[in-house]
Design a protein around this nucleic acid. Structure first.
Lengths: 149, 149
DNA sequence: ATGTTTGCAAATAGTTTGCATCCAG
DNA sequence: CTGGATGCAAACTATTTGCAAACAT
């Protein structure tokens, strides 16, 4: 019995199937990147994946990793971490509020919501971490970008 | 009656008071940056502020803006937008989940919570925006960083 | 007077683009 | 075979650091 490998293979099969659907070629680099990415418990950046994959594929380039992660994001097998990859931005609003971010134009809208304000931090998290900030993050398409389509 | 200016001045006074408390000098550049920043409805990056302040202070440098925003963040008059300023990162976990991020080491932890899963998007937001993703974002200090102090 | 802050320049880091070569289908 | 993918180099963007000069206190 090899449950771990079996599961990995199942995921890999999903990836390969997705490639076929989207007309993407199944290259050794893509397979290696996907395996490394999918097995990661962190939320890796291109460089993190690059450093690991390079151990097996010394000739792989960082752009290939970068492009592949972008591709995985496009075909729905990866989700870009909210706000990462953008320039540092600062919020002058110090009151409790929440964020909606447009994935097209990057615009961030503050909004208030009493129900969101009152959500409680789970006990098991409180034990392990010091939580300094809580906020609901919504993402989608803003009115202006929706109109511009 | 000048309600708008009066309010601006009140905020400026808070800033000046904070500078005195923290032993920071009140320079024309800092005042200009603070005014521009505080009046901004966006969530500006250093470059955005730079471009505006430069209209009045052509000699100001981008680093000064960058450093001042970092300073404002430190003394609690600005809040860095979660995850911004970091390299693009990707999440292999496609299931619904939420994020805790350590502000010291940048580590992102996934966690599940049924109550968080069931939060509802307010009607007025649904009307205006197409919401594709919702997630609770917590920030603080993780167990490892807390132990390392 | 003096110690912080500023502005410039250089260094660093991450991402993107163009292009010739390579290879999966 | 052929079009998409790769790897390299260069361009770009954002940020950080060192340092001499400037200036707030």
């Amino acid at each position: 019995m090899e449950p771990k490998r079996r599961q990995t293979d199942a995921r890999l099969e999903i990836f390969k199937q997705a490639c076929r659907e989207y007309g993407l070629k199944i290259t050794p680099q893509r397979v290696a990147i996907f395996q490394e990415f999918h097995g990661s418990a962190e939320h890796p950046s291109a460089v993190m994946i690059y450093d690991k994959v390079r151990q097996d594929y010394p000739h792989i380039s960082l752009d290939t990793v970068s492009r592949t992660l972008t591709t995985l994001n496009k075909i729905g097998l990866a989700k870009e971490v909210e706000f990462s990859g953008e320039a540092r931005r600062f919020d002058p609003n110090l009151d409790r509020h929440h964020h909606f971010r447009c994935i097209k134009c990057g615009h961030i809208v503050d909004f208030n919501n009493e129900i969101y304000d009152s959500i409680v931090i789970p006990e098991e998290l409180k034990m392990k971490y010091t939580v300094l900030e809580k906020k609901v993050c919504l993402e989608g398409i803003c009115d202006r970008c929706r109109a511009g389509d």
